[in-house]
Every structure is written in C-alpha cells, then in structure tokens.
Design a binder for these strands. Structure first.
Lengths: 334, 334
DNA sequence: CTGTTAGCGCTTTCAG
DNA sequence: CTGAAAGCGCTAACAG
C-alpha cells in the first residue's frame, strides 16, 4: 500500500495534476462541477492525504511555528503552552515543541535546530535573554516570553512583575507587619526575579539587601539557618514573607513547619503564582495570579501579526515589551 | 537577502551539488580534503542552512513524531511530555505537539492533522481509546499512552493501576480502617479510573458500588452531601478515603475541611498521584507515585523500535500493553 | 574523487 | 474549463 499522490488521483479522475491542485486549494471556479464532484469522490475513496512537505517546498510557506520553553515541567509553562497551542491552531499553524530543561546548552541546541526547521517563526521562553544567541535572532520572526532582556531587541510578552508585587506588599504592610522578607531563588539578573524584588523594595523602601533571603532549588539548608535567626530574634515584631514563586513557597513552608511555626499567628506569608492547592491550605495562601494562558496567546498573536505585516511589505516596527496584568487573590495567610 | 541554497554553495565552492550533498551527509570519503575544507569555509561564511523540507521530500524520511495529549495543563501530562521530548531529541527526532483540552472533537481534529503532517509516527495520550479513530490508526506507527482500550490493537504504555491501588488499599486497611471509599471523577469506562477502582474493590472485597463516591470536575455539591452523611453516621467506625488523582483530592479535602473534619483524626486519606505540595500538608499525604517521565520515554522507545523493525523488514509484532511500575509513598495521612 | 541527471509531491504560469 | 511543464531544494544512482 504505497502512499497515494496527487498524480495517482489525477490519473484516476482523468484530469491533470493542476486541476487536482486547484481543487485542493479551493479554486473550484476553475473546473466544471462535474469534475469537482468526481474529484471529491476519488479523494474520499482513495483516502488521499496531500503531502505537507511537498506543499511547503513548492510554496515556501511554512505553517508551523517553533517553541522553546525553559522547563515544561513547570505549571506556568504548561499553561502558557496551552495558550500557544490554541492560538496557533485557530490560525492554522502547528507547533513544534522544544524543552530546555533549564539547561543553557540544551536551549541553544534547541533554538538552532528550530531555526533549521523551516518554521514561520519562533516563540521562546528564554532561560537568559542576555545570552549571545538572542543577539543573532531577528525581531522579524521571533517573540520572547516571560523573561525580558535589558535592552529590548525582540518583542517580549511579560507580566507586570514590578507593580503587582509592589501593591501586594503594600497590602501586607498595611496589615501591620513590621518586617517583610523577599524569599527567592538566586536572582542571577533574571528579569522576573529582579523586577519582583524591586517591586518589593519599592513598597518597603528598603535600600539594601538585608531583607532578601536566597534559597537554592536543590538545598534549603542556608535558608533554614537564616529563618531560624529571624524567628528567634523577632520578639514582638510581626514578620512576613513573600516568596518569588510556588516552589520557593513550598521550600519556605517546609522549613517553617519543621520549626513549628504557623501562619498567620507566627508569621504572614504571600507568594507570586497561584496554584490550586494554595486554596486548601489552612488558611488559604494569598497570592498573585498570572494569566499564563493569555501570555501564550498573546505571544502567538504578536508573532503572527508581525509575519502578516511583512507579507504586506510594511516595515517591522521596533521591538517592544507587552505587559499582561496579574490579579491579586486575597486569602488569609497574612 | 534571499535564502541561500545548496546550489549557491556549490557554485561558490566550484563543485556540484552532489558533492555538497555528500558533505552534508558526512560522506567525506567521497571528496578530497581540500574541497572538504573549502566547503566548510563557504558554509560558515554564508551561514548556509540546509532545508529540512527539501531533504524530507527527497528522502521521504520524516524525522519528526507527532504527539497528542488529553490536557497539557495537567502536571502528569507535562512530565510525560518532558520524557517524550528528551527521548526524541536523543534519537534525533523533533516533536510536533497537539493538545486536546479534554475535548473529543479537538482530539480527532488534532490526530487527523498530525496524520497529514508527514510524521514518522504518533504518540497519543487518548481521551477515549475506544473512539472510532483508534480503529483506523495502525499499530505500525502509533503508540498509545496512559489509557488503554478494551482490546489491545495498538501498543500502549500504562502504569500498574490495578496492583498499585490494591496494595495501597491493603495497607490502609491493615491500619485499622473499617470502611474505605473510592473517590473519583465519573468512571466512564476510562481504563485508568476503572482499574484503580477495581484494585480498590479487590483489596476491600467489595462487590457493589456502595463505596464509590463520584465528583464532577466542575461541581462538588453531590459529593458534599454524601460525605456529610457518611461522616455523620460513622459513629465509632474508622473511615478512610482514597482519591483517584490529585485534583479529586483537592475537591475532597476542601469539602472535609469545610465540615471541620481533620485527618488523620477524623478520617484517613490517600491518593493516586504524587505532587510536591502533598508533602507540606500537615500531616503529609500518603500516595502512589508514577514515573510519568519514564512513561514518555518508553512511548518513544517503543515507537522508534517499531519503526526500526519495519526498516529491517521484520513484521510488526502484535500490539501489547507495557506496564510501568509505580512507587508507594507513605506519609502520615492515615 | 567529482559531475549529471532524474526524481520526491505539489504549485503555478502559460497555452489551448 | 483543462493540461503541459518548469521549478521548489535536496538526494541518489550512475558515469566518468
């Protein structure tokens, strides 16, 4: 059962391949109703599936977009991906997917492979947008997501990291906390972490890093000691913590639990990111909720718009940052 | 800046395209060292990227595999996907990704698109493997994942749903529970749910459905009433619950919390699926942990092996079920 | 060691 | 309304 081609169909119908091609592309005006019906019939009988590659080679029009993510295992990422997929599907594009697993070398490799794949464009959730590779990528056919570079060379979709954290922290402060700490994985100049931290500092008017607590993803022992000291010396002061994301929150709470401290009595707590389980904690965890799916959709829209503009020979506008708002979910954790 | 092709490179180097092609395919023995070096140089200077489509059209060898998942938003799914991606990458395949969002029509559409995409094969995490589409898919180039059909027409990778739940429940029972309940979304003949439920019944020797509690993903009100009755009438009996997955567990605990019941005092609880937050609950939640990443990797391996066998003209063996073991994580929730 | 040439499956003028 | 034929970028004999 060799694969059936446009040639076979043409032969069976008794017309030329050109006519079949026209049929496939919906140019029905270019054939009699009779042959149209006949073609429909044959195609159904033979279960003919036009070859995408051949079509693409002939037209030079890629209908697929390439995606690279930092880590598919992160709930944030998978929601983004659902948005990307949905938006692409609606526009008739398919997506080829790539996962960096938080490893720069893998990411570089992925991006290079993607560039060879004859895609219409790329959506990249970068590990570090300052990496050299991002200097060579063109704003014509790529958009970045979540993490932004110092200088905006390529359109980037982000959340309002700074302002959302700032107002969240202001609310915590208003609730009577004397001292607040920002708990985070190493900042490493990663824009999301830095901006959230800046928002925190801006709300607290802190000017040094005495209220920054760093955890490593792999080990929480250093944090443990710091927390011990803080809790021991707090006296009558009311202490609160804001964690940079859900995983950090888990690390934070694990330690505090081990030391037998409970919120909101012994400390207050809030976090960036909103996951389902946060609502069944007792009490529920207050948090900042991002519309991750929207991020993905917007990335697709931005990319497709650019491509369309180029088709119209419009010049590519300057790269810009597109901010998606978050929402504030107040529960009883502080 | 028109795209540069193999022809351009050949001209610049002053050889024929055949030689360039040989170079690209690593057949260095077929050219002098001199021209080899010269080609390397030109390719670097021109930044020439061979076209994948053209290559594929010429060789008729797809280097991409298509994936369809029930719901990318599910942590189980994203971990599976990470395994799939990694295994594909190692084998030099890229993956084109598709998300059904739990919608049969979307899934059907996705699968059909995938079949037109000139992929080497398909890995499908089916919504319902009894759907007609799975009768037309061929075991030659597809493998199913997680949910299995009544009759195994296509290789399927699954976890040991029945036995893992059975021994988990036996352990709960041994801990002195008088009555255990299986909490689940509507079974709907979905194999994973059914098998887990069967494992439960097998351990408890229950022969009717009096210990099956159904929740809907969207509404927990019916469950609420049932739980109320059960807890009210339990008297001195020790009651326990086993939930079919993490989301059901959240629904279950939410209700029980609202009624002011705590585990393990008022009831015991365990669940299928292992997520990070389960360990910082107080007390931690005992659970069955699946190696989702492994599932993905195995799906790829199974698929690629089949394809290889066909290349060697071996007949495709009969479809089979491949079971991946789970592990039992004991904490203090019962 | 290197070049010629005929495809791969589809699109797209250009004639008729 | 329909067909012939060139071409998309690459591969794979086959010659030389």
């Amino acid at each position: 059962m060799a694969k059936i081609t446009i040639n076979d169909v043409a032969q069976l119908v008794g017309v030329s391949t050109a006519t079949i091609s026209n049929y496939l592309n919906g140019n029905f005006s270019k054939m009699s109703e009779k042959t149209r019906i006949r073609i429909t019939e044959i195609i159904k009988n033979t279960n003919y599936q036009p070859s995408n590659v051949a079509h693409q080679l002939a037209t030079n029009e890629a209908r697929t977009i390439g995606v690279s993510v930092v880590d598919i295992t992160n709930p944030f990422t998978s929601t983004v991906l659902s948005g990307i997929y949905e938006a692409c599907g609606q526009a008739g594009y398919s997506v080829i997917f790539t996962n960096a697993s938080n490893n720069d070398a893998v990411e570089l490799d992925n991006i290079n492979k993607l560039r060879q794949q004859d895609t219409a464009g790329l959506i990249i959730n970068p590990i570090n947008p300052e990496s050299p590779i991002y200097k060579v990528l063109s704003n014509e056919n790529v958009v970045l997501l979540d993490r932004q570079a110092k200088e905006t060379r390529i359109d980037t979709i982000v959340t309002d990291n700074f302002s959302s954290v700032k107002s969240f922290i202001q609310d915590m402060k208003k609730n009577g906390y004397d001292e607040l700490y920002f708990v985070s994985w190493p900042i490493q100049k990663i824009s999301t972490r830095l901006l959230r931290y800046n928002g925190f500092n801006s709300a607290m008017h802190y000017t040094d890093d005495h209220h920054l607590l760093i955890v490593n993803e792999s080990s929480s022992s250093a944090l443990k000691e710091e927390l011990y000291t803080i809790m021991q010396n707090r006296k009558t002061k009311r202490i609160g913590f804001f964690s940079m994301n859900a995983k950090v929150l888990i690390q934070l709470l694990t330690i505090l639990q081990q030391m037998d401290y409970n919120y909101p009595e012994d400390f207050g707590v809030g976090t960036y990111e909103d996951l389902e389980w946060m609502q069944i904690f007792r009490p529920g965890i207050s948090c900042i909720s991002q519309n991750s799916k929207k991020l993905g959709e917007l990335a697709v829209k931005t990319l497709l718009d650019k491509l369309q503009q180029q088709r119209n020979n419009s010049p590519v506008p300057k790269a810009r940052i597109i901010e998606v708002p978050t929402s504030f979910i107040k529960r009883a954790s502080y």
